[in-house]
Amino acid sequence: MKTISNLLISVILAVWVVAIAIISAQNAAPVSLKFFTYQSIQIPFGLVLAFSAAIGLIGIAVLQPLWRLGDSPQDARLDEDAEFFVDDEDF
């Protein structure tokens, strides 16, 4: 089951990368980002999109282990019990 989920994640990630590449190629016009009074230099929209996607992926990769730290040992025990009690009538 873990192999299928890894394959699905890889396919979704590949589709996003292809979508970013297509959007980047079609939108080569330079843009400038503004945040309150700060303004960036003009860079191509595709580059902004690629950096945003990369920062999002890195952010999720960093935050995911922190989410697991919040799980209590009782939650882990309940997950183990749920796997133990499987209804055999469906098989």
Rank of each mutant, 00 (worst) to 15 (best):
P44E: 10
Q26A: 13
E80W: 07
T37N: 10
E89G: 12
D90A: 11
I43M: 15
N27T: 11
L33S: 03
I55N: 08
V17E: 02
I60D: 07
L7F: 14
F36C: 00
L33I: 15
P73S: 06
S32E: 10
I23M: 08
A21K: 04
N27I: 01
A19L: 15
T37V: 10
A53S: 15
G46P: 05
I22K: 11
I20N: 00
E89F: 08
L69Y: 08
G56C: 10
Q39C: 02
V15D: 00
G59P: 02
S52P: 00
K34C: 02
D71Y: 11
F84E: 12
L57I: 14
G46K: 05
E89C: 04
D75Q: 15
I60Y: 13
F35W: 11
Q39L: 07
F84W: 09
I22C: 07
P73T: 05
S24D: 03
A28C: 02
E80V: 15
L66R: 11
V11F: 12
L8Q: 09
Q39E: 13
T37H: 12
S24Q: 01
L7W: 07
Q42F: 02
V17D: 01
A76W: 08
L63H: 01
L63Y: 15
I20F: 09
D87Q: 13
Q39I: 04
G70C: 08
Q26P: 00
I22F: 05
Q42I: 01
G56K: 09
V48Y: 13
F84G: 01
L57R: 02
A25R: 09
Y38M: 13
V17L: 15
A25H: 09
I55F: 13
I12L: 15
I55M: 15
S5P: 00
S40H: 06
L47P: 01
Q64G: 02
M1H: 07
A61R: 14
A82Y: 13
V11N: 04
F51I: 10
L49R: 08
D90L: 10
Y38E: 03
D81P: 00
L13Q: 05
S5F: 12
E83Y: 09
K34F: 01
A50P: 04
I58D: 00
M1F: 06
I58G: 03
G56N: 12
A14H: 03
G59E: 06
A50S: 11
